[in-house]
Each structure stands twice: as C-alpha cells, then as structure tokens.
Amino acid sequence: MPRTRRCHYPNCHEMVTFPDHYCQQHHEHEAEYLASRQRWTRSHDKHYTHKYNTVTRYRNDTKRQQYNFYRTRQWSHLRQQVLERDHYLCAYCKVQGVITPAKTVDHIIPIEFDETLKANVVNLAVICGSCHRAKTDWEQLYYGTGQGNELQSVTPINDVSAIVVLMNKE
C-alpha cells in the first residue's frame, strides 16, 4: 500500500500519494512549493551544519588523552580479550556469589590514578552496570578520581574481592 498524506493546500483534505504534496486539483502549486523548500534549505544549511560536532567532551588534555585511549584498536583488543577471559560475567558480582552477565570492561585501579596500568590485562575486569556505578562512587571517595576531585595519595587496591568489601561498606 503506498504512503499517503494530506494535500498541503489550505482547507483541502484530499489524500495524496508520496512524493507529491498537492492533489490533482491543486497540482499547479507543487513546483512553487518545491522551489520555496529549496530556497529555504540553501539559506538555512549553514545554520544547521556549523554547530555539528562542536561540543568538546573533555576540556583538559589529560582527560582527552584518557578518553581517546578507549577509541584505539589496542583497547578494543584488550577489551575483547578480557571479556572472553571472564566469560562475559561480572567479576564483582562473582565474588559475592551472584552470576551477572556484563559487557563493560573496567580498570581495577583507575587510569586516572595510575596511567601506567591502562593497557595491563591484569588490571582489567568485566563489570555490570550496578557494580560499575558503585565502584565509581567508591573510587571517587578512595582515590579522589572524577571531576572536581583531587587525587589522594593512597595505596592502590588491585584485588577485586577487597574492593567489593570496601564498596559494600559505604
């Protein structure tokens, strides 16, 4: 069945098949309508495209470099390796005796705290959404990561079971 719409002529309720805009009775207005749409598009084209992709996600250089790492081929290979190693199951839930499927790979010690561990497979674990939110909140308190926080000089914890215990305390 062909797609239809109403005639664009004021107070005309006749149905028209696509791509036409006017019925047979008002068909003489079609060329004028299409010309006005082309004029409008030409005059407003720059207005719409000049703002495209101008939002900067991270304004400082260290955050930008951290974010760009997640767009590299190295990260995609590391991520896939860890997902297959952990069988797509949340490591933090597994410590608590719960089996939760997950697809997010997380740095056990955040790269904001120690950037040398960003490509280390031992520092990566699969994490589900709820554990990730809880761990992010814990990292902000313990390590001082996150926007507006100041990094603390604490000993890094790389044991998932110890992190789960600390996450559940708060």
Rank of each mutant, 00 (worst) to 15 (best):
T41L: 15
N60P: 04
Q74I: 12
N68K: 12
Q96S: 08
R59I: 10
V55F: 10
N158A: 13
Y142R: 00
D20F: 09
T145P: 06
I99M: 11
T56L: 05
D61H: 09
D45P: 01
A91Y: 01
T56Y: 05
V122I: 06
K103Q: 11
P19V: 00
V160H: 02
R59S: 07
I127A: 01
E139T: 01
R85G: 15
C131S: 03
R64E: 08
S43W: 01
Q96L: 08
D114E: 13
R37T: 06
Q25R: 07
Y67Q: 13
W75L: 07
Y58K: 08
S36M: 15
Q25D: 10
C93E: 00
G144T: 06
H26E: 05
R64Y: 05
F69R: 03
R71Q: 15
Y92E: 00
L83W: 02
Q96E: 08
Y142K: 02
S76F: 09
Q140L: 07
H44P: 04
C90V: 03
R64P: 05
H27M: 11
K94G: 03
K63I: 01
T56R: 13
T145M: 05
W75I: 07
F113H: 09
D137K: 10
D106I: 04
T104Q: 11
N68Q: 14
C128L: 02
D114P: 11
R39W: 07
Y92L: 03
Y48H: 14
T72C: 06
R39L: 11
Y67F: 07
L83R: 00
A91V: 09
Q81L: 13
T155S: 14
T100Q: 12
R42A: 11
Y70N: 07
Y67P: 03
Y58V: 05
Q66A: 14
H26C: 05
C23I: 01
Y143D: 01
N68E: 14
I109D: 02
L89S: 03
I163R: 00
N60A: 11
Q81P: 02
Q25N: 11
S36D: 13
D20Q: 13
T72D: 10
Y58A: 09
A134L: 10
E84H: 09
I157N: 03
P110C: 04
Q38R: 09
V95G: 04
R59V: 15
G148W: 04
K118R: 14
A102I: 02
Y70H: 08
T145N: 05
F113R: 09
E112R: 08
I127V: 14
A35L: 14
D137T: 15
T49C: 12
I109Y: 02
T100E: 10
C23G: 07
W138C: 04
Q140T: 06
H50P: 01
E115C: 06
T116I: 00
D106R: 00
I99G: 01
Y22S: 00
Y88H: 15
S43C: 08
G146T: 04
V126P: 01
V55S: 13
Y48G: 07
K103E: 11
K94P: 04
Q152M: 10
A134E: 07
E150F: 01
Y48A: 15
Q24M: 12
L124H: 01
S43L: 12
D45I: 08
